[in-house]
């Protein structure tokens, strides 16, 4: 069955891997270029790489869902569209083996390739963490590290499972796109702030590349207080702060050193979602006829 599954998916897999290799070559060039100027002042890095960072993370965000739509959605849906699932399911090999082999042969190469690209990206994008957004935040976080492989796996599983349920490639592609955006938004907003404890800054200033999750005001006793800027009117801001009893600022933040801890936690959550999708797929394949 491995040969049949490979032969069926061959073109899509090779095109997918070529795309990943192409992007990987670009990122390797970036890494080489970056290594030649490091160590450097953030202002210099911003000057040199600012434009690039405007779109590279979005390419990385788009790649998993593109692979999910074009390599994942057709895995089962195309079989239904051509009626060939009947051929596969009436040979000597069992239904479970047919399903599992197709899933693995189609999904594993792109997932592994994207995880490797993520590790390369961590080298190439990591030092640039300080100039745009923290590498702990969307879209920089999803663009690097093995979480890129996890997101590819979830997009692929979405595509394959949707194809098995709705039995149409186009429908499965649409579900993949919607599902991927949903997973991305939910994990980044609900999950990511809680992967590790925050550091406290009594001055409100944080180290470069950190992810500031909370800022607030302190009174003279060091307790948190509020500040209503709209009440200031014509009063200068410094005076207005004093008038409202604000003596200082504080911040809570995730230091950039938590990056790999975050990668582990987020990959774990995403892989859990992959597990749920595979379970749904395993249930759906039993209903196929």
């Amino acid at each position: 069955m491995t040969w049949v599954a490979w032969r069926q998916q061959r073109l899509l897999t090779l095109v997918s891997l070529a795309l990943v290799a192409l992007v990987g070559a670009g990122m390797a060039a970036l890494w080489a270029d970056l290594s030649s100027v490091l160590p450097a002042d953030p202002a210099v890095l911003d000057e040199r790489y600012g434009d690039l960072l405007g779109y590279v993370p979005f390419v990385m965000l788009a790649m998993p869902v593109l692979l999910g739509m074009f390599a994942g959605a057709p895995v089962f849906a195309r079989e239904f569209e051509q009626g060939t699932h009947v051929f596969g399911l009436t040979q000597s090999i069992g239904r479970t083996r047919w399903w599992a082999t197709k899933l693995l042969v189609a999904g594993l190469p792109v997932t592994v390739a994207m995880a490797l690209l993520g590790l390369l990206n961590a080298k190439a994008l990591g030092p640039l963490s300080s100039i745009l957004t923290s590498r702990l935040q969307t879209p920089m976080f999803e663009s690097q590290g093995y979480v890129l492989g996890a997101y590819t796996a979830v997009a692929f599983a979405l595509g394959a499972t949707a194809g098995l349920v709705v039995r149409s490639t186009l429908g499965a592609m649409a579900i993949t796109l919607a599902g991927y955006v949903g997973v991305l938004a939910a994990v980044a907003n609900l999950g990511r702030p809680h992967y590790a404890g925050t550091e406290y800054s009594a001055s409100g200033a944080v180290e470069p590349g950190a992810w500031r999750v909370e800022i607030g005001y302190l009174d003279a006793q060091g307790a948190t207080t509020t500040f209503a800027g709209q009440k200031c009117g014509e009063t200068p801001i410094a005076q207005c702060l004093l008038d409202q009893g604000v003596a200082g600022r504080f911040a809570r933040y995730h230091p950039v050193s938590q990056f790999w801890e975050f990668q582990g936690a987020e990959s774990g959550i995403v892989v859990l979602v992959v597990g749920v999708l595979v379970a749904v797929s395993a249930w759906a394949v039993r209903r196929v006829h």
Binding site: M1, V4, Q8, G83, V86, Q91
Partner: peptide, 25 residues
């Protein structure tokens, strides 16, 4: 099956290969 479903992009040789791969006997 009805409609004689076979993998459209396969060659005849590859269809035979598939038959061999999917059936130990």
């Amino acid at each position: 099956a009805q409609g004689k479903p076979l993998y459209q992009g396969f060659t005849v040789e590859e269809v035979l290969h598939a038959g061999r791969a999917l059936n130990p006997d």
